[in-house]
Design a protein around this nucleic acid. Structure first.
Lengths: 361, 361
DNA sequence: GAACGTAATGCAAACGTTTGCAATAGGGTG
DNA sequence: CACCCTATTGCAAACGTTTGCATTACGTTC
């Protein structure tokens, strides 16, 4: 009958469709192969398979190679969740961007992002993975969230912040922990950072050497790192009889810097001839304000920044600045964290900085 | 006897020591409390405890509150590894920074970092965590590594790259996947990105409107996104009879831009009066070279960038640019990924761009 | 008071690894 | 051939959750 023939055509197509579906598209996500399956395929026990994949010398090299080849052939990967559960170890390092109660806001300082990026490299080089987190996710109980929660084996905190209670608490509770911040701060935890005092001295001395006498510090000494830079700044100025200093306390953004320089110029005219900015972004904000009012850099005002972000080299005039070695920082941060995972209690570390002289001074 | 008394004193001290040791310092890292312990404390079964903490309405509200309070009191957190194993779900989204076989090198374009940062926000807002990864860790078999390996539930790829084989493969193998790139590219996967063609048109039209006639495009059309921008560029120029165009094919770095402009000026003099740079970093590199040779911006050369990074506003002259909405991009990327986790197959999405007019044009 | 319905809770299996210990194989020695 | 030694492999338990199903408690209805 005609009806039947149509029916069977339909059926055939449906079959084809199903075949394609299950044999093709869905085949890919068919039951994920587990270690036991791999073992069966190789004709060994799961224990042998496990050891073989982990390169355990207990297993004959021949067997090991065979299993590793088989695993590669079948795109087999171990279930990390299961491993972590069994081993009580995650092979993950959490990086915690630490902001002060700021409204949920993404990072805009390129320097911090660079630090994260360099930490990422160092973490990978050690065979760990990187969980990018922030106070929003981790809440206040960092130890509970990361360590007890088996989300990471240790934590790197980027940004000391103004209040260090949560860091201190996590450290006391036994969280393997390293902080990027001011290494002179005393606490229960290891801190890696530049020698901010020395850097402050160097930058200021450089300004003085260039003939500046009425100096400005732009930044907020409430931050531990900036406090050190400011201390170096003040110390150097006190050594120079004719030099005077003042402090422009601002948020660490280029916008704040731009505005405060504008206001200062309006109010007092050109009451300074040298600026030590606490970051390159601040320096560049200041530079913009100065240029708009036709203040010549470096003739009228010498300008030194901090960080050596990419823009420091591109701005015009290019920006003299203190270079922080983020690459090394990432390395050291991770090394110190891994030491803690081994049970040691590493000290804080000061990294050398470097004055990069460019046109702005 | 005297001997005994000494003995007992010793013993007492040892006891004290042990007490301090286990009751004090080590107490902190004493056996991590597990769900069963919490349940015992509350006098319920582990199943009830589990359900209570997960707010399962099967459990009486009173019991739920009690358990949640108890958990908070004891800083209890569920073992994520165990949950993930049992649930076959990680609640993690991997973000994969995709570079082209470049030597192990950290990102330096602030724009990409901004994208990552905005993705991070969006991911968190959905209650997921963010695994920051790269091709170095993930190898070629992304599906195996992330999905089968139960490291993440889905992947967001930042940077389409020049070769898309690995992306395609992962998509075919069923990886929930979204890419930040050129949404016009056809493929097995959803792509989110700006409308680069339109953006190219807008930027170029703007240059033409400002009177530029001999235009330069700086960038490498081998990248899908840049190809679209270039296409828009060419289309607009072809509509303007007297306008001419040329292409400076360079890496997307400010340094490359600086050098190529320098060379061009040396070789040909000022052979152009308008530049469309494929990124702000490129634009700023070009700007530096121009300023050093006293080419006036925007009088002699009008300059338009792309991205609207923070620096665009601070440079002087400030940089006219095409703003990409990274905030929204993060949101959309995550939304589309979550759709896939639900089983849907979302389409690519084009985001609107905006011409931000500043002094450079 | 038996039967039933509903709300709340408990039991036990399962997720996929890793590893201490037991077991086996194979080869050399007395 | 019995014995032992070593090199290799297998067995089974454990890691800490979640959840289908069974069970209990308790009030209601006939």
């Amino acid at each position: 009958m005609p009806g039947q023939s149509i029916d069977s055509v339909l059926k055939m197509n449906i079959f084809k469709l199903l075949h394609w579906f299950f044999g093709g598209a869905l085949y890919m996500q068919s039951k994920k192969m587990k270690l036991a399956d791999l073992a069966k395929l190789a004709g060994v026990s799961t224990s042998t398979a496990s050891r073989a994949l982990n390169n355990n010398p207990l297993i004959k090299e021949e067997t090991r190679n065979k299993l590793q080849a088989l695993a590669k052939k079948h795109n087999f990967s171990l279930n990390a969740a299961a491993s972590r559960l069994r081993l009580q170890k995650t092979n993950v390092i959490a990086v915690l961007i630490n902001f002060d109660a700021e409204t949920e806001q993404s990072i805009d300082d390129p320097f911090l992002l660079k630090v994260v990026s360099d930490i990422n490299l160092a973490v990978n080089r050690q065979g760990y993975e990187l969980l990018l987190s922030n106070s929003y996710m981790a809440g206040d109980d960092w130890h509970g969230y990361f360590i007890d929660g088996r989300r990471a084996d240790g934590v790197i905190v980027v940004g000391q912040g103004k209040q260090q209670a949560r860091i201190e608490r996590a450290a006391i509770e036994g969280t393997p922990l390293v902080v990027w911040g001011d290494p002179k701060t005393q606490g229960e935890y290891a801190i890696v950072g530049s020698d901010n005092y020395l850097a402050g001295c160097t930058a200021t001395r450089h300004l003085l050497d260039r003939g500046a006498r009425r100096l400005l510090f732009m930044g907020d000494p409430a931050h531990a790192e900036l406090a050190e830079r400011y201390r170096g700044f003040c110390d150097q100025i006190s050594k120079e009889p004719e030099a005077s200093a003042s402090l422009l306390k601002i948020d660490i953004t280029s916008l704040a810097a731009y505005e405060v320089i504008n206001q200062t110029l309006l109010r007092e005219g050109l009451s300074f001839d040298g600026i030590f900015a606490c970051s390159d972004m601040v320096a560049l904000g200041a530079m913009k304000a100065l240029k708009e009012r036709y203040v010549s850099i470096p003739n009228d005002v010498r300008l030194v920044g901090f960080d050596d972000i990419a823009m420091a080299d591109i701005s015009s005039p290019s920006l003299t600045t203190i270079k922080q070695n983020t690459r090394l920082a990432g390395q050291v941060l991770v090394d110190k964290l891994l030491e803690q995972l081994k049970g040691d209690k590493p000290d804080s570390a000061q990294l050398d900085v470097e004055l990069v002289m460019r046109q702005s001074s």
